[in-house]
Amino acid sequence: MRSLKTLKTLKTAKKKKPLSLAPYLFLLPNTIIFTLFIIIPALSNFLMSLYRTSPFRDREFVGLDNFRYILLIDDLFPRSLGNLARFVVWDVLLIVVLSIAIGVLLNQAVRGKSFFRSAFFFPVLLSPVVVALVWQWILHNQFGILNGILQKVGLETRPWLLRPDLARTWVVVVHVWATIGFFALIILAGLQSIPASLYEASRVDGSRAYQDFIFITFPMLAPSIATVTILGMIRAFEIFDHIYILTGGGPGTATMMVVQYIYRAAFELDQFGRAAAASLVLFVIILLLTIVQYLFGKRREAL
């Protein structure tokens, strides 16, 4: 068992060490693969954004034309960016709140705990294709189980995936359903690393459960919550398969996200240059967000 005093050092302690080769060696294998298969391809992708491509002609250098097109002329790129922003905000918000709630519930010592843990984790095992397919069936206007049930109990049925507002909601719900088990697991791991002694100490002081949660659980869980937030954002930004099969970006373009825009440009319209330009814009946005997050996190660490 650990005392409270040692615990304090957990958050702050970080000592200066003399410069050595060791950290670079530790980073080496990861960095080699990372450079070869992520950095270099990403750079060559960016080069592509300066060209106009066609299956029938050699590619032609067009400068910033592709950027001008997607940012100033095209209506679909700004729309897909807007859709993505809205999706990311709701998706991440729900994931953070629900993963904490589920994590805390799963951490209780109740009967059937193992069963519940498995049940919540189950959807994570399914590939995105299958997840989308199953929900398409559940939500289908005519064949869906949901409307079938509503009809039986005499409630109004709705075209769940055919109205923009409803489709946007369901896209978030389905993605959360499919991934929440993984995030709850991260929270659960975080919860279990909180030493029992902390709670015992506060019990002696006569604190209540909700106080425990606010003053002990929540702060001790902060790193796990940060992990969930950032990973949730990543998953949300690169969303493609779930939505592509569930709504196909529809109705109309109500749920078209940026990756689908890129995919459509490249593989449905043969416009590789334009697709590359769109992915560069997406990358810059993500990079800016990451830097902000990092600086914010640094400040919190320093506190």
């Binding site: 289908h140 206007n141 005519q142 064949f143 075209p159 995936l161 055919l162 592509y244 099969i245 709504t247 196909g248 970006g249 529809g250 109705p251 109309g252 078209m256 689908q260 449905e268």
Partner: peptide
């Protein structure tokens, strides 16, 4: 014509399911 097909997905969406069901 139902919205299900043309508003119901991206790329190709078929109506074969509805036809097979006699609907």
């Amino acid at each position: 014509m139902p919205l299900d097909i043309w508003a119901g997905g991206s790329g190709y969406v078929g109506g074969n399911q509805q036809f097979i069901n006699g609907q």
